[in-house]
Amino acid sequence: MRVPLTGRVVAAMLELKNIYKTFNPGTVNEKTALDNLSLTLNNGDFVTVIGGNGAGKSTMLNAICGVFKLDSGSVVLDGVDVTKMPEFKRAKFLGRVFQDPMMGTAAQMQIDENLALAARRGASRTLKWGITKNERSRYRVLLAHLGLGLEDRLTSKVGLLSGGQRQAVTLLMASLKQPKLLLLDEHTAALDPKTAAKVLALTKQIVEENSLTTLMVTHNMRDAIAYGNRLIMMHDGHIILDISGEDKKNLTVDDLLHEFTKASGEEFANDRALLT
């Protein structure tokens, strides 16, 4: 057990220790998704995650969120061991944006209602009114800040928004109540390039304004290089490359492809990653 630090020491925000996870064990579909995965994120790290299909990127995020039980290993968030904590309780510490824009919001509820739900993440849900007047005016300011014209549509159903708008709202929801860790699971992959760029810029803005520790999975190598202070590459359920600081700034896509081939002994067979 790690004792919570009190001094001005750079503390680890996330520690994944020797995580194993096999899906469908004992069947023809057996798949070892996480294979002795270990990772430590420092407070304020913005880490981009790349890797081929089935490398375990999304599975890693889901392991952090507690979507499934681990076979072994542990997840420690800011000194608290959350390995056994159910998903809805862990949510207190985590902001999440999914690949599918439909997944992060409640389509039949209004924009302000969605935000109000997110503002109460981790708090007990009482018999007090679900949204207050003060909240509404705060949301209007925050939505205006997104620059998508949503501030005048507080009572619109989220289902009426475009994919990009929904992802922007989901980002706002994820950061509304300061999370210890922001998890972005290819959150721009389902958007057209122009919208994706806008949402990415917004992501950067929100991460910097709130100085969030962030884990961003992406298929786009250029984005992985351009954003964040650290880059990790996954393959076969563990991390095969971990670059930060100056080394990361000088990276090129060719370097990454080369590193991938060297580390994994395979060609990086993913069209989407090359189309950048």
Partner: peptide, 28 residues
């Protein structure tokens, strides 16, 4: 009244999108 409260909104969210609800800390 009930479905306008925090607790009731959580139930409505659960019916709308379970994934999102759990991500927002709702015990679905």
């Amino acid at each position: 009244w009930f479905f306008g409260t925090e607790a009731g909104s959580g139930i409505r969210a659960t019916g709308c999108n379970e994934n999102m609800s759990r991500a927002q800390g709702i015990n679905t």
